[in-house]
């Protein structure tokens, strides 16, 4: 439990990364959001056995990490933290899909393994792109962009508050777990039932808190709209960013760049 807590606290680093001032950070949040969406859409649209064509897509996260001065290690750690979900999705493929798809010498590789690999690569690309977007835009920037792009305010406000109170509720939950542990000694069997009560209690407390927050907000003139001082202005650089990258993604979707590059190199060598 303490580990999960530590990871959540570490999300705070995201906020600090988002305050950096690089060419990538200065881009309009809408430009970055749109590019990320096109990226995710093209990556997801590949067939289930595709691996090699996906590899060329790594150019986008790598470029952003380099230009945006984002610690690659931190992003990797975060990807690994959520990796179990992706692994769970694909882990049975090798057993269900035993058709040999590829043979290297005496070895034949079943289609299941390839599709598992494809799922993992896609997962790393999409989650990585989302994390990088967050690290070089910040949650407020992302929410602002969403709102300007027409997403209803209810959702963007929801997202902002979830992010803000994640820490508070996590902490509350952890205090309860700690308090329970102090009185449960080595007896673990009553655990599940007690956890049910604790979850219910946490829900009630969160509802109470939501009510208090609402009253604090209405005291300060809240009328359903969270105001922002930031004015967004789309520059030609932003348009070039979206158009350039999206164009590249579509080309990479249509042509297998890694394969073309490979055959080109082998041709040059021979």
């Amino acid at each position: 439990m303490a580990d999960i807590g530590a990871h959540f606290i570490e999300i705070g680093l995201m906020d600090r990364l988002a305050t950096k001032d690089t060419a990538i950070h200065r881009l309009d949040p809408r430009a970055k959001l749109l590019t990320t969406l096109v990226f995710v859409a093209t990556v997801v649209s590949f067939g289930k056995y595709e691996v090699s064509a996906l590899l060329s897509f790594f150019v986008y996260p790598i470029a952003l990490i380099a230009r945006g001065d984002i610690p690659a290690r931190y992003i990797l750690k975060k990807i690994i933290l959520v990796a179990p979900f992706a692994i769970l999705v694909g882990v049975f493929n090798p057993f269900l899909d035993r058709e040999p798809l590829l043979t290297i010498g005496d070895w034949s590789i079943a289609g299941g393994w390839i599709s598992l690999l494809s799922i993992l690569v896609r997962f790393i690309l999409t989650v990585g792109a989302a994390l990088i977007l967050l690290a070089c835009t910040g949650i407020n920037g992302v929410c602002l962009a969403l709102e300007k792009l027409g997403v209803p305010r209810v959702f963007t406000a929801q997202l902002l508050f979830m992010y803000r109170y994640l820490f508070v509720i996590m902490e509350e939950g952890m205090r309860m777990v700690r308090a329970k542990r102090c009185r449960s000694f080595s007896k673990q069997d009553t655990g599940m039932k007690a956890f049910g009560h604790m979850l219910g209690h946490l829900l009630l407390r969160s509802l109470d808190r939501a009510q208090r927050i609402h009253s604090a907000m209405s005291c300060r003139g809240f009328d359903g709209h969270i105001p922002s001082m930031k004015q967004l202005r789309l520059t030609s650089g932003d348009v070039a960013f979206v158009a350039g990258w999206s164009g590249l993604f579509i080309i990479m979707r249509l042509y297998n760049i890694s394969q073309l590059l490979g055959s080109f190199i082998t041709e040059v060598i021979s």
């Binding site: 407020n140 803000r164 808190r209 927050i213 604090a216 907000m217 300060r220 003139g221």
Partner: peptide, 20 residues
């Protein structure tokens, strides 16, 4: 914690005046 809900201290203190 009930009162400070904006992402930065500045924005939080600005929340009231902005709504006004």
């Amino acid at each position: 914690d009930d009162q400070l809900f904006m992402p930065t201290v500045f924005e939080d203190v600005a929340f009231g005046p902005m709504n006004l």
